[in-house]
Amino acid sequence: MKTVLQCALLVFCVLLGNLLVEPWGWSVWEMISPAPDDAPPPPAEPDERSRELRVLGRLTPTHGIINLSATPGDRLKSLNVSEGDQVQAGTQLATLESETLRQLEVEAAEEQLAQATALRDAEIKAAEARLRASEKALEQAQAKNPQLEQQKRQVELAALNLAQAEADLKRVQELRADLVAVQEQEQLELLVEKARIEKTAAETALDQLQQADEFQLQTARSEYEVALAGLDQVKTLRRIEPYEAKLKLAQYQHDQTILTAPSDGTILAIPTRPGESVTPEPILQMADTSEMSCIAEVHKSAVDSLSVGQRVRIESDAFEGRQVAGEIVRIGNQVDPPQLRNLDPLAPQNRHVVEVLINIDEGVANVSNLIDLQVDVVILPRESHDGETGDDAQ
């Protein structure tokens, strides 16, 4: 009797287990039965595609977006471009209302500089003329004075006459008194005295001429030094550098009222319209869209698996079936909260990412009109990239 009850209990447990497990596709018999020889193999290892890393990214010009702004408080006067226009470097894009006032300041500074330059040039010209005159006077003063040379000869002649007269008187005095008349001796003495007076007068005149000549030379030198100092003073005091600096400042302030394109590119957006006040926000935005890139946000835990040169595939419904690919050119070092929003409600939101820059291949579909488009970035595994490289090399 006990054995019958045990068998009945065993059958009941088997039936109950079958009812509980069968909705999930298994029966108790299948669970406890050995697998037949033709049973399907266990699941295979994940293929290469399953190791692809899928992240979010956004399209952006390779050289970035240029925000052109001006000093707040001014007002936009006119625009010379529209959104989508292609412009070259140096093209005038917009003008502020203060441009008219700044232009007047430039013209006033130019006039002041012109007047200061003319006055300086006139004074320098006059000072140079005085310097040339003083140089000529100095040269004349340094030259030999013919009157001085003539007076020196007069002194020499007077000295000779005196010597001759003294010699004649001495010769007469040495003769016997009975052979020379007293009148003749007195006459010779008068001649000696006259020659002595003439010599003294000639020497006095020579001294006066020498003093006058020296005074003239000193005066000429002083006038030359004064003229030279006057020229230096004019060049020092009549400086035009402050006026030139003022003009440069006025020109710089005027240039700030005209927005010009810093490089070739496309006008992306014009947030400010003519008549509106200038704020810290950009007046217009432009970029060189000839080269496009993608900035992908990769979770910090997956960054170590990336490398520069790794191939990626970029996907978006906006591509309309066009193939867009590229490669990683830079991996960031800063970890920040994500800027892109995942539309999957089950995706984790509390995470931190690293920005990875991807250069889009040349010759692929044009995406220059899709700036800031959020895309799906599929980073291919390194093995796939290496294999493709090896095949290409062969």
Rank of each mutant, 00 (worst) to 15 (best):
T3W: 03
G17A: 15
L20R: 09
P23W: 15
W24T: 11
S33G: 14
A35H: 11
E45S: 12
G64P: 06
I66E: 08
L68S: 12
T71D: 04
T71P: 03
P72E: 08
K77N: 08
N80S: 11
S82C: 11
E83A: 12
D85H: 02
Q86L: 10
A89V: 01
S98E: 04
E99Y: 08
R102V: 00
V106H: 01
E111L: 03
E111S: 02
A118R: 07
R120V: 04
A122V: 03
E123G: 00
E128K: 07
K136Q: 12
L138Y: 05
L138N: 12
Q150P: 07
K152F: 00
Q154T: 11
Q154V: 11
Q154R: 04
E156P: 00
A158Y: 01
A159Q: 03
L160N: 07
L160T: 09
N161S: 05
L162R: 02
A163R: 13
R171H: 08
Q173Y: 13
Q173N: 13
R176P: 12
L179P: 05
V182C: 10
Q185A: 02
Q187P: 03
E189G: 01
E203D: 14
E203Y: 07
T204A: 09
Q210G: 08
A212S: 09
F215P: 01
F215T: 05
T219A: 09
T219H: 04
R221C: 12
Y224Q: 09
E225I: 13
V226G: 02
A227C: 12
G230Q: 06
L231Q: 07
E241I: 00
K246C: 00
A250G: 08
H254Y: 04
Q256T: 03
I258P: 00
A261P: 02
P262M: 14
S263M: 10
T272C: 14
T272F: 13
G275H: 10
G275S: 14
V278W: 15
T279G: 15
L284I: 15
Q285I: 01
M286R: 13
D288L: 09
D288G: 11
T289R: 06
M292F: 10
S293D: 06
S293G: 07
H299L: 03
D304F: 01
S305H: 02
S305K: 07
S305T: 14
L306M: 04
V308Y: 14
Q310K: 05
I314E: 01
D317C: 05
E320A: 15
V324G: 00
I331G: 00
Q334I: 15
Q334M: 13
P338T: 15
N342K: 10
D344Y: 07
P345N: 11
P348R: 11
Q349N: 04
H352P: 00
H352S: 13
V354M: 07
V356I: 01
N359D: 10
N359T: 02
D361K: 12
G363L: 13
N366C: 11
L370H: 11
Q374G: 12
V375I: 15
L380Q: 13
P381A: 11
S384I: 02
D386G: 03
E388L: 15
D392K: 14
Q394C: 13
